[in-house]
Design a protein around this nucleic acid. Structure first.
Length: 931
RNA sequence: GGGCCUAUAGCUCAGUCGGCUAGAGCGCGCCCCUGAUAAGGGCGAGGUCCGUGGUUCGAAUCCACGUAGGCCCA
């Protein structure tokens, strides 16, 4: 047994109840309860006088499923920014929202109903959809709150709220009166069995045999490269849907591809050069190339329609592929998405000779009444008879099928509603509005501008039930549209009072102001539009439905913040509805973040099996770990996450936590009111660390301001590791532990540490919301009005104390310290010393360093954490010394320290042994224990 | 196939106007300490700056073409 008297009890070792291990999964829910009790969100939602506002308008996630990492990334970024603004003095209320309508929910509800669907009316379907949406709103709300995201969660905005639905009608009305909304035709997926339109998600792709036919489209014009050639000249067109030929209006070629004219000895065919040999094989005859040219040169020529007296022009289309077929594509704008776009571009007619049952109409002439699938053979026979069929066969390819009846679906143009991009000059106005917005990162403006300048008219109608109806009433007699200002205002008021359900519950006449008659034919028999609005239209009016109506908020928003996919989605739909009604953008600034990828840079998908579930991470490690991860990455491009990355983040978290723990532990007996030392009286190294802290504060606050959050992370983390843990705190331990409790030297260190702790906790609190507030509660001397760090303000850097001379001196001391560390390490390897306190250093340095070393001669041993330092003149011969590579002229000789080890402070001192009562103590320790 | 974007150490990031031997922290290896202890400290090894070509006295940086990956569209 060791009976030696212990001096350990006379030391001031760190003491704190702030645990080393976070145990976040248990702690975080407790803090959430505490915040609820303190009503933190309510307090933050209470504006103070003259506070500048900062409105980050939340893009509504879809109310379906549990939150995933994408939600986590987005909402945590928003939360960090909102919190940093609040702590910088802004009034920054955050009103979260949800997108509640739409096909995915309706589809899900219908799937669950199965066969019962047919027996249930629209009202009931809508009731079930609402129930479903609200359930997931609630679920996701709980998950977002668990992530530590602050906001007015008790009163979120929902696109299914009557007030919101009324605003949708209001904006529709405004756009309608401006002449921006029109009715037109557009092909959509259509199931002729179920007689219904289908959304992309309702389509299943399966292999299906189709005819594969090659048809001659005879040239009607002279074509210069073939001027001398004799024989019938045609474009060779390939198609797998003969039944669409009656609707043909053009032939498309790829303008950039090479085309060839080939002869089979009698006729001349024009097709893509790259496909000649493939066609040769299929046709089983030799094709001799007689001319070559770019696809571009064909554009503008006319071809004869296969069956009608119609001149089908050759048009250019980049989408024409050269991997199969002929490179000449027959265009029927009523039967294909791409065909439709080409039709728009070239202003082509759009015949639609197929009815909702999949049968040809009178428009198809002799084919009228025939089903399109049955008609295929007839058409092929007819082409053969006309001598324009080169060959026909069959091909298996992936073809869309209806999810409900499993039968093939077709593209069929139907009446739809559109927002015109050009009628009211909307496109140009939007492009101008884009210019006045700040887009972050800067390439974002190129993306949105490119998309707005290229996009087709916005199709805003959907053939569904779960959404806001298109508020249009038709005259049942003459078909006149009744959409006057008063009528739409009346409908808006009805929606505001009763919700959009009223549309489905009432007869058309009951939706109109009393006494309304058709302005054209005075009829009083009405019919209502069955379509609903695109959900993008709904969420796109949130600036009007939320920013303009909520008392906490204001229009326009200071910031929209979403993933880069929203350049096509919400950024754009919001812009168009805002510019259409107000001629300006609904946001001052738009920030986009990248998408999640795994450690290899691949997207997260169930099939790749690389999906990480944020809820599991929270359960295992805590929300603060996820939040730190969000903060650590540069979100302007894709953001990687993997187990390794999360491990690194957890380690970084532990480092920050432990640094805070040491700071708090060092303040166990510190009462700032009583013990604080004036800055002017502080030890030089304490002044220095506060200067570093001021610099860190400036850097971090600037990074928050510029939304450069990864800079926040790296700066704070490096400060904890480099400045504090490995240097300042390591050096300060001696003073904190061994100096007399109330000595100036010790109180000086504590004064610095108190400020370090307070500032660090504050600047990290927008990120580590839980950990920071936990640490906050351990700080001594908290003012009563700041029971939570989240109600406090950011620290202000003190420029007055930035002393360049002191900074420069300590910069030099640190450089020298690196060299003494190397020398000590060499001595350690040579088994001369173990702990650095066992060493004495003899040091020489060039003039520019020697001056500083002389000024701080008294502090050098502490700074280098050795027992003795002797400065010697440069050039003094020392034996067996370390010569610095980094700073030529710096020479360090390491020896065993002189004297004996003090049992209390562990420094080696000559005087140890001189005091008979305490033969194991040094002079400083004798004084410290009052002996 | 088109538009926009990304690529620097095993990981996360710096790298200004083109200019020293491309940096930091983590991780890794070795060592020390045992008074921050499921902690703390030191030293060290890690780079085809995605590739190829070009401009230039000089390129991680500028240009072109590729490759890989991401978002959106087709």
């Amino acid at each position: 047994m060791n009976e030696k008297p212990s001096y350990k009890d006379t030391l001031n070792l760190p003491r704190t109840d702030f645990p080393m291990k976070g145990n976040l999964p248990r702690l975080e829910p407790e803090l959430l309860d505490k915040w609820a009790e303190l009503k933190i969100s309510a307090k933050l939602a209470q504006p103070k006088q003259d506070q500048p506002t900062f409105i980050l308008h939340d893009g509504p996630p879809y109310a379906n499923g549990d939150i995933h990492l994408g939600h986590t990334l987005n909402k945590v970024l928003k939360d960090i920014i909102v919190r940093s603004k609040a702590m910088a003095g802004h009034y920054s209320p955050f009103v979260p929202g949800w997108d509640c309508h739409g096909q995915p929910i309706e589809h899900e509800v219908e799937k669950r109903l199965g066969r019962e669907r047919a027996d249930i009316g629209t009202a009931e379907i809508r009731r079930l959809c609402r129930e479903y949406a609200l359930k997931f709103v609630d679920r996701q709300r709980g998950q977002f709150k668990r992530l530590g995201v602050g906001g007015i969660w008790d009163e979120p905005y929902l696109t299914l709220d009557p007030g919101y639905e009324a605003t949708v009608v209001r904006i529709f009305n405004q756009l309608y009166q401006e002449g921006l909304i029109y009715r037109g035709r557009k092909p959509i997926h259509w199931c002729y069995r179920c007689k219904t339109a289908l959304a992309e998600a309702e389509i299943e792709y399966e292999d299906e045999p189709s005819p594969s036919i090659y048809i001659k489209f005879p040239l009607l014009d002279d074509f210069e490269p073939l001027a001398k050639a004799s024989g019938n000249k045609s474009l060779l067109v390939w198609t797998t849907t003969p039944w669409t030929l009656p609707a043909n209006v053009a032939v498309a070629v790829n303008p950039n591809a090479d085309y060839a004219a080939v002869s089979d000895g009698r006729d001349i065919y024009i097709l893509a050069d790259a496909l000649v040999s493939a066609v040769e094989k299929i046709a089983g005859r030799e094709l001799v190339k007689i001319a070559g040219f770019k696809g571009e040169s064909l554009v503008g020529l006319g071809c004869k329609h296969p069956t009608k007296e119609y001149r089908s022009p050759v048009v250019a289309a980049d989408f024409v592929a050269l991997d199969q077929g002929t490179g000449c594509v027959h265009i029927a704008p009523g039967h294909g998405e791409e065909d439709y776009l080409i039709g728009q571009k070239y202003n082509l007619p759009s015949p639609m000779p197929v009815d909702e049952n999949g049968r040809f109409t009178e428009e198809a002439g002799a084919l009228a009444g025939l089903h399109i699938i049955e008609a295929n053979d007839r058409i092929i026979e007819d082409l053969k008879d006309r001598g324009i069929l080169l060959m026909s066969g069959s091909i298996d390819h992936s073809y869309p099928h209806c999810w409900r009846c499993k039968q093939p679906v077709i593209f069929r143009a139907t009446e739809q509603w559109f927002v015109s991009m050009d009628a009211g000059d909307l496109r140009q106005r939007a492009l101008r509005a884009i210019q006045s917005v700040k887009w972050v990162p800067d390439w974002s403006i190129r993306r949105i501008s490119g998309m707005v300048s290229e996009r087709p008219d916005w199709c805003i109608s959907r053939q569904r039930s779960w959404g806001v109806p298109i508020p249009i009433i038709f005259c049942g007699d003459c078909g006149q549209i009744l959409a006057g200002v008063d009528i739409l205002k009346h409908i808006e008021a009805l929606f505001r009072a009763q919700g959009a359900d009223v549309w489905f519950a009432r007869e058309p006449v009951e939706l109109l102001p009393p006494g309304t008659v058709c302005p054209k034919c005075s009829g009083a028999d009405f019919r209502k539009e069955n379509d609903i609005l695109d959900v993008w239209f709904e969420s796109g009016v949130s600036h009007a439905a939320v920013l303009e109506t909520r008392s906490e908020l204001s229009w326009p928003a200071d910031l929209y913040l979403e993933g880069s996919d929203q350049h096509r989605g919400w950024f754009q739909s919001s812009l168009l509805t805002s510019v259409g009604t107000k001629s300006t953008a609904p946001y001052r600034e738009v920030l986009t973040h990248g998408f999640l990828v795994d450690g290899e840079g691949r997207k997260m998908s169930k099939s790749l099996g690389n999906v990480i579930d944020p809820l599991k991470v929270i359960e295992r490690s805590g929300a603060d770990i996820l939040r730190l991860w969000v903060c650590s990455a540069d979100y302007s491009s894709d953001i990687a996450i993997s187990d390794e990355i999360l491990d690194r983040i957890s380690e970084a978290y532990r480092r920050v936590r432990n640094t805070l723990r040491f700071l708090l532990g060092s303040l166990a007996d510190f009462d700032p009111a009583r013990d604080k030392v004036d800055y002017a009286d502080m030890e030089a190294i304490d002044k220095w660390v506060l200067i570093r802290m001021d610099e860190l504060i400036a850097k971090v606050l600037g990074a928050y301001e510029d939304y450069r959050l990864h800079i926040v992370y790296h700066s704070i983390y490096n400060f904890c590791t480099v400045d504090l843990s490995s240097f300042y705190l390591d050096v300060s331990k001696d003073r904190l532990y061994t100096s007399a409790t109330n000595s100036k030297a010790r109180r000086s260190a504590q004064t610095a540490i108190f400020e370090l702790a307070e500032s660090l906790i504050k600047i990290v609190s927008p990120v580590l919301v839980f950990t920071a507030d936990e640490a906050w509660s351990y700080l001594p001397d908290r003012p009563a009005d700041e029971p939570s760090v989240h109600l406090s303000r950011m620290p202000v850097g003190n420029n007055a104390r930035i002393d360049m001379k002191l900074k420069d001196e300590w910069g030099k001391l640190l450089l020298i310290r690196q060299e003494t560390s190397k020398a000590l390490e060499a001595a350690r390897t040579a088994r001369l010393i173990g702990s650095s306190l066992e060493a004495k250093i003899r040091l020489s340095a060039p003039k520019e360093y020697e001056e500083v070393l002389t000024v701080y001669a008294r502090d050098l041993a502490a700074v280098f954490i050795v027992s003795q330092v002797e400065l010697v003149a440069e050039g003094t011969a020392v034996s067996n010394a370390f010569e610095s590579q980094a700073i030529p002229g710096v020479v360090v000789e390491v020896d065993r320290a002189q004297g004996h080890k003090c049992a209390r402070c562990w420094n080696w001192r000559l005087e140890v042994g001189e005091n008979s009562d305490h033969p194991e103590l040094c002079g400083r320790c004798l004084e410290a224990i009052g002996a």
